[in-house]
Design a binder for these strands. Structure first.
Lengths: 222, 222
DNA sequence: TGTACATCAGTGAACGCGCGTTCACTGATGTAC
DNA sequence: TGTACATCAGTGAACGCGCGTTCACTGATGTAC
């Protein structure tokens, strides 16, 4: 039943968007009276949380699966695999992607306890990849200028939080790659390129990914 | 009056988001009966369009102003100025930014005639910058692999549309920089970095911009 | 095998709400003579 | 200066709608003896 709610919630997300997602409409499509939903879900917000967590997990699974097909030490290929998996999943589930990475839903605040775990799977995969690549010497030492004080402190905190023992420059370049990766996906999905501009968006994205890998200096062999 | 509608519409956008923007609520805050709005605006959709166009224009103005303070031939600085102006405006107007660059509003389709002009101002500024920089030799010839066929055709069409006589590699790198720039802004504004992660997001963004400029090989002097 | 009972998924009516949009209207303002 | 008229911004009632949430309820299912 919860499974059905999730599935139909997804469909409605696709049809009307998160802000207009309605308990009653989901119930209707479930063939059940609207109040019945409240047996499974406290709130409209909890329904949204369900979809958020579900989405993050699906994305995380897709990324793990794609990454699993590549040799652990093929760092550059792993990065490309992760990126492509993100895009592929996003194209298949645009509404859920929008829920996770688009504009925040006004009035809804994802509960951190349920959400941060699944919500950080992709970035944790990326961090693990960079840490391993750095340890293996598959990423060069970047001669970037030292960071301004505040940023250095922030980056230090981030490094400690994720337990990543890599240089500042790599953290910053990693964050750029991460944000840029999702930026490319969002641009495509949210229609920023305009209609009919790209007949082969996957090819464009692939190139963008390669450039991001270049920017990190990521190579496959150690 | 239209001016007041715009201003209050903006406030509501901030408060409740585009999907829940309501003609009645705007009228209420205007101190006017709800039907009065229809004297100025055909539709709820036209109200949204008003805000979209207004937002694009404000952003475009901000970008132009920032770019104007930098010497035309200081290509790298011009790029940084554009990027910073985008972020600054977005931070000041997060809801309008979300309307323009976040998830599409379900059920609303921006009318191309009114929207594409203002909506492409930033990217046209970027393209102009790259074309000039390339002509001046302030951007290197990138030794990127040739594009796959479909992408090459797409890129060719884009180049023709915008009248930019630059190599394929620069077009692709430019599109990455464009998407990445907005990706960084969206990540910050949409809360992807998590709360309290960056005390100095502007410094992070600045670094990301520099890296994007590096990736293009943009330099100031010709 | 048969009865008594508890559980609990789903019902249906009701609450109070805000929404977009229409329509005939009022009444102040400004123009023409 | 004074009157007649047109314009048109704003009114207020009404339409039909869907929403989230509550609450006492029904009735099938499963368990205990």
């Amino acid at each position: 039943m919860l499974e059905d709610i999730r599935a139909i919630g997804r469909q409605h997300l696709e049809a009307v968007g998160a802000a207009s997602l309605s308990v009653r409409a989901v119930a209707r499509d479930l063939g059940v009276v609207s109040s019945a939903i409240y047996r499974y879900v406290r709130d409209r917000d909890e329904l949204l949380t369900l979809l958020v967590v579900d989405g993050y997990d699906e994305l995380g699974d897709a990324v793990d699966r794609a990454e699993g097909k590549v040799a652990r030490t093929a760092y550059r290929s792993r990065f490309l695999a992760i990126g492509r998996a993100v895009r592929t999943w996003a194209v298949a589930e645009p509404a859920t992607y929008a829920l996770l990475f688009g504009s925040p839903v006004p009035g809804y605040h994802a509960p951190a306890e349920q959400t941060t775990g699944p919500g950080t799977r992709v970035v944790r995969s990326l961090v693990a990849l960079w840490v391993e690549a750095h340890a293996a010497g598959a990423v060069p030492e970047h001669a970037d200028a030292p960071l301004p004080q505040k940023l250095a402190r922030d980056v230090g905190r981030v490094r400690r939080e994720v337990g990543a023992d890599v240089p500042d420059a790599l953290v910053v370049r990693g964050m750029l790659a991460w944000a840029a990766l999702f930026g490319c996906v969002s641009f495509e999905l949210f229609g920023q390129y305009g209609p009919d501009t790209f007949t082969a968006p996957a090819q464009l994205f692939d190139r963008q990914l390669e450039l991001l890998a270049d920017q990190l200096g990521l190579s496959d062999a150690a």
